[in-house]
C-alpha cells in the first residue's frame, strides 16, 4: 500500500514540478538555493502527502504546501538576506534611468519581487498564477479585502523599488 502511495506521489510531483520551480524562482537567488528549496519542498510535500485526499487537484494542493514551506524557510533566513537586498537596491537606482528592452525589464521585476517579504512573495506568486482573491485569501488565512489591500500595497512597493526617485 505505502509503496503505491510513494509511486503515485513521485509521478504526480514529477508532472507538476514546474509549479514548485516557480516558487523556488521567486524565493531564491541562484541555482544552489533553488535546488535546496526544491528538495526541501519535496520532502515537506511527501510528509504531507498522506493527508492529501484528492478533493482538490494535486497541483493546487502542492503549491499551497510549497508556499507554506517557502514562507517558513524564508522567515528563518531573513537576516542573512539583508545585504543582498541592499546591493540589489543600489543596482536598480543606477539602472532604471535607461530605457530597457522587455527582457531586461522582466529581469528587473524578478529582482524587485525577490526583495519583497515572504508573505508578499506568496501573494505575487498567486497573482501571477491567476488565482482569484478568494483563493489567495484562503491560502494565506486572511480576508479577501485584506488580500486586495495587500496586493495594492505590493504594487506600490514594487514601483518604488523599480523607481526609487519617483521620476
Amino acid at each position: 500500500m505505502s509503496e503505491n502511495l510513494e509511486h503515485s506521489f513521485v509521478k504526480q510531483l514529477q508532472e507538476n514540478q514546474n509549479i514548485i520551480h516557480k516558487i523556488c524562482r521567486l524565493y531564491t537567488n541562484g541555482d544552489d538555493a533553488h535546488k535546496d528549496l526544491f528538495q526541501e519542498i519535496t520532502i515537506q510535500l511527501w510528509k504531507a502527502f498522506p493527508k492529501f485526499r484528492g478533493d482538490s487537484k494535486f497541483s493546487t494542493w502542492a503549491y499551497r504546501v510549497a508556499l507554506n514551506t517557502a514562507i517558513t524557510l524564508y522567515r528563518k533566513t531573513k537576516r542573512s538576506i539583508s545585504t543582498i537586498e541592499f546591493e540589489g537596491r543600489q543596482h536598480f537606482t543606477h539602472d532604471i534611468e535607461y530605457n530597457y528592452e522587455e527582457e531586461e525589464q522582466i529581469k528587473l521585476m524578478y529582482k524587485a519581487v525577490y526583495q519583497l517579504n515572504d508573505i508578499e512573495k506568496a501573494l505575487v506568486f498567486m497573482y501571477l498564477e491567476d488565482k482569484d482573491y478568494t483563493e489567495i485569501a484562503e491560502t494565506l488565512g486572511i480576508s479577501e479585502v485584506n488580500a486586495r489591500v495587500k496586493m495594492n500595497r505590493i504594487k506600490g512597493k514594487l514601483k518604488k523599488i523599480l523607481n526609487p526617485l519617483g521620476i
Binding site: 525589464q105 501571477l128 514594487l158
Partner: peptide, 10 residues
Amino acid sequence: ELDLLKKDWQ
C-alpha cells in the same frame, strides 16, 4: 511591469 512579468511567467 507586473503585467509584463505575468506574461513572461505564464
